[in-house]
Design a binder for these strands. Sequence first.
DNA 1: CTGAAAGCGCTTACAG
DNA 2: CTGAAAGCGCTTACAG
Lengths: 350, 350
Amino acid sequence: MKVTIRQIAKQLGVHHTTVSRALRNSPCISENMRQRIKSLAIKLGYRPNLVASGLSTRKTFNVGLIVADISTTFFSQVARGVEDTMRRAGYNVFICNTDDKIEDEKFHWDALISRGVDGIIISPANLKPRYLQKLLGAGVPIVFIDRCLPSLRASYVITDHFSGGYQMTKYLLSLGHRRIAYVRGEVEMGRFYGYEHALKEYGIPVDNSLTPVCDFTIEGGKKAAKKLVRMEHPPTAIFCVNDPVALGAMKAIREHGFRIPEDISLAGFDNADFAEFLQPPLTTVHQSKYELGEEAARILLQEMNGKLREPRKVELKPVLVIRDSCRHIGDSRVNSALPECLLLATTIIA
Amino acid sequence: MKVTIRQIAKQLGVHHTTVSRALRNSPCISENMRQRIKSLAIKLGYRPNLVASGLSTRKTFNVGLIVADISTTFFSQVARGVEDTMRRAGYNVFICNTDDKIEDEKFHWDALISRGVDGIIISPANLKPRYLQKLLGAGVPIVFIDRCLPSLRASYVITDHFSGGYQMTKYLLSLGHRRIAYVRGEVEMGRFYGYEHALKEYGIPVDNSLTPVCDFTIEGGKKAAKKLVRMEHPPTAIFCVNDPVALGAMKAIREHGFRIPEDISLAGFDNADFAEFLQPPLTTVHQSKYELGEEAARILLQEMNGKLREPRKVELKPVLVIRDSCRHIGDSRVNSALPECLLLATTIIA
DNA sequence: CTGAAAGCGCTTACAG
DNA sequence: CTGAAAGCGCTTACAG
């Protein structure tokens, strides 16, 4: 039998509201009474019923996290960041997977609203302004993560995808590559624009046959890279939208008999845990997954406490991490790092 | 302004209990009335308040998932299995990380109880009978996952760790290895016993210097393997408690100037997504992470519906996946697979 | 500082 | 089949 404030009240011969006040540290209560109530509560193993208090205060101390796929190296780390900081503030987090399908996202959204969550962190499946606007209008504090529309009047925390795409492409160009493939994601555009922009600076037009779309998975990367590698004039470098995709590409490249980086340079994005342990260690763009989640949670906390007049928009800077999977074209040196980049990478990551 | 059953009732000139009945598909209501109520509910965008119904029915349609670390490749896949099947049944899942620290586990446990979850899936931080017994006595349906005490009167779903450890060690022995290290985990014992048992069959005593403990992480694996590799007589094979640990070991082995598998054979456990994409592809033990979560959720669902008289105990069989990271000792062939094993592995995994 | 009332939004016997 | 009452366990004005 669960113990309630009424039972505590009865044993002490007081009204249950008094017990409620004592337990919530209300100032309107005598120190003596507070002590007696609290110690009895502990003795009886009282556990507050948050669904009851949630009904009466409209505050459940629950939040929702909506992402494409929690089993992904990226989102699972983001989720950890969210959970750790939410927990410290007394919140629990619901985890919701959408696979970037809008119907699943709607389903989860409704489920969360019905459960009266105090806030939602979401990596939305689509970036249509009207859709996002509707989410914002639901009356629940919300912060976007990893993906958003900067023009929206909404809080978000993302990595500067453009910068990441740009830095990597620039690096590849500096190594002498001119036929650089970019294996893109469906929803992801920022990195692609960065890639495009860097090419433009060198007067190179985007070649559609070099920018296949894939689905962020290892298998997807393998499939996409297979096409690339079988071309009559294969690219000399393949830049992948994330590290799992690069892993798949690695396989495809080798199955075709090409060596990395001697025949084809390979680059990823994310700096997944496994990236530096690959053979060769993977050159990639580091983004702080845990911090993304942490920061999003912090902002949501402020929003929920009404401490935010204006939306907070934060962009974490990605950093180029040069390892051994890209080589200088027409140069025997395999790893011709730009010293500043390397330095930057190591200091920030360490 | 959120719409409630009272508002619907008012507009229709009926009592709110009638609305409640219509919405819950109670049989005690006329078909006509049901239709009118339902269509108005839809028109008004009514969303049931699950915290209110939760308070009155003591059913929140929420469950908790307590694991060591959601950002891990293993648990993130388990979590996905749990979430997918729970969602289909109308449940949301809270995600809780403990890092295998008992205080954090207790904290989360209390948080879940306070929130009135209908059930809990847990990979407990410790396996002391008294502790587990206390969890079981809390009056919440519970199913253990990945770790448990078989002697307990409780449902669980685990991989047959003993068999996995045994199969791999047996395989290594069959390749001619006699100095086989096992990099173990702190809490994990089943695989270790399997390793021990296989050695015993060959009359080989366990050498403590060959069984360092590590923490399931890449870095931990690197550190542990470094010690092994620097021994005066290094092992000829290193079997790691999981694939991330094997990844770290791979690095350590190579940094020491040894080749895999020519100088040292390496094996993992889990069959993580990245395992087959490593160079060389990693020989490991496959366990079905997603299915573990799926099955645990299914069992919990039955428990919550009172459909389980007896605890359900399920052990998923792991399968040896032979790739190229282990070699036959005193034999030039690198990969001397036992054909049956290979066959088994491919059919089940495909 | 403490008590008694009313309410959060729903559900569940109990009448009729 | 429908209504009115009571209750889930808490909180929050309102009195005193």
